[in-house]
Write a protein that binds this DNA or RNA. Structure first.
Length: 416
RNA sequence: GUGGCUAUAGCUCAGCAGGCAGAGCACCAGAUUGUGGAUCUGGGUGUCGCGGGUUCAAAUCCCGCUAGCCACCCCA
């Protein structure tokens, strides 16, 4: 009699139920279609990685510093559930020898990521990303290519109304000098910044630019802009990317405050937001160039560019008409009486031509018919003990109500 | 990590100047002497999220915890 508390889902994770799956599959299929159309190949990498791989490439980000799922396995290895895909894809690129094939390697991945943050709308501890990476090429055309791919995906799922924000954050050659300039600008204002920004000033000054705390806002306007201080190479890359995007008729807004907090990010950074929204916490996709990432992982220096799209967020915004209807059940077999063996055999016969389920429940015929109706079955096959003995059944067309008696062996041809 | 709101039947929720636990939907059955969709009738024991406290008495008031939603931080 004493009952225990039912065990519920882990905090911040959720089930994708059958009713939600069509829109989910539509988003994934669009990703695969678009990826394929752009010449990208699918890759699957493990959800588990060495914690060190993740930590080495993301030490200063919230995703790694505060939100990493980390644990020791039974062999004492320090592992992590990936909070993003790029680190693992770059690792696989080298370990799998893709660096020895034609370059760049064009890859995409769809799968779950994990972050231990506080759950909220459009934000889960296990969430799904569509990841696209072009590794082994430094050409600006690849930057615009992945941006165009992201745009094509979002367009494919019916989210044509978008805002694309763009910036360049330079590279190891020009960024240090810019950061000194930025620090020099902010130092006299330090006392007026909020606590975390005061720390950022020396540790990670770029992040001062995307701070959203009201008291820090007034100073941004006159802060030096990195795009004014790019080295010749970065500058050429930047103008080239913009020209390519113009040629692709992709509209964008330059956002000098769009940054990435990590050293291995270089040059182009971008984010896609839904068109109508004004909020900052609803990015649908974001990415950029990461020419320093491979080296940070201990591999030979190799350029790369890519983006991550949020499948959870996209499915929540997808318009209803881009979601295919769920495939209906074709046939429900309804035994009337203790006829499990016979009903299963009839179902087996019918499965040659369609989707068939059997209602084995010990309830009234009326109730079973009601189930058939709710399941959307096109046909019902009714079976009484007498009919089963004669190996015949009643085939009922659920839309017209017409019903005929047939031999079991005739069913497939009548259903086809 | 911070804040606000919430937690009662399978689901959505009402009940909260403390006094016997309710409705709709869903589900099951019947009206229809074994055939779906419409209608009507009947069918409710549920640790009132968990733990503690106040009280003669707690779903109701207080504290803690857990979870959900929303926002902040940050990101997908």
């Amino acid at each position: 009699m004493p009952r225990s508390e039912p065990i519920k889902a882990v905090r911040g994770v959720r089930d994708i139920l059958p009713a939600d799956l069509p829109r989910w599959r539509a988003a994934e299929q669009a990703a695969r279609d678009v990826g394929h159309r752009f010449g990208y190949e699918e890759i699957v990498t493990p959800v588990l990685e060495h914690a060190e791989l993740i930590e080495r490439v993301g030490e200063d980000t919230d995703a790694v510093a505060k939100e990493l799922y980390r644990f020791d396995d039974r062999g004492g290895r320090n592992l992590a559930l990936r909070p993003e895909a790029t680190a693992g894809v770059v690792r696989a690129y080298f370990e799998g020898g893709l660096n020895q094939g034609p370059q760049p390697s064009r890859l995409y991945l769809i799968g779950p990521m994990f972050r231990y943050d506080r759950p909220q709308k459009g934000r889960y501890r296990q969430f799904y990303q569509f990841n696209v990476e072009a590794i082994g090429g430094a050409e600006p055309a690849l930057d615009s290519e992945v941006i165009e791919l992201a745009d094509a995906w979002l367009d494919e799922v019916g989210l044509g109304d978008l805002r694309l924000e763009l910036n360049s954050i330079g590279d190891a050659k020009c960024r240090p000098a810019y950061l000194e300039r930025l620090k020099a600008y902010y130092r006299p204002l330090k006392d007026q910044l909020h606590g975390e920004c005061q720390l950022r000033l020396e540790r990670n000054p770029l992040r001062l630019l995307d701070c959203k705390v009201p008291q820090c806002q007034p100073f941004k306007k006159d802060a030096p802009r990195i795009t004014d201080f790019l080295c010749d190479e970065c500058s050429a890359h930047w103008t080239s990317v913009l020209r390519l995007l113009d040629a692709a008729s992709l509209e964008y807004v330059l956002n000098p405050y769009l940054v990435r907090g990590l050293d291995y990010y270089t040059r182009t950074v971008f984010e896609f937001y839904p068109g109508g929204a004004s909020g900052q916490q609803d990015a649908l996709a974001s990415g950029g160039r990461y020419d320093g990432l491979a080296e940070a992982e201990g591999w030979p220096a190799t350029p790369g560019v890519g983006f991550a799209g949020g499948v959870d967020r996209v499915t929540e915004l997808m318009p209803i008409d881009s979601i295919p209807a769920k495939p209906p059940l074709d046939v429900l077999v309804i035994p009337d009486g203790d006829l499990a063996i016979e009903a299963a055999e009839v179902a087996r016969i019918c499965r040659a031509v369609g989707a068939v389920a059997v209602d084995y429940a010990p309830k009234s015929l009326k109730a079973k018919m009601r189930s058939a109706n709710k399941l959307g079955a096109r046909w019902v096959v009714l079976l009484t003990p007498d009919e089963a003995k004669r190996r015949v059944a009643q085939l009922r067309d659920m839309s017209s109500g017409d019903q005929v008696e047939l031999d079991w062996v005739e069913l497939p041809t009548r259903l086809a």
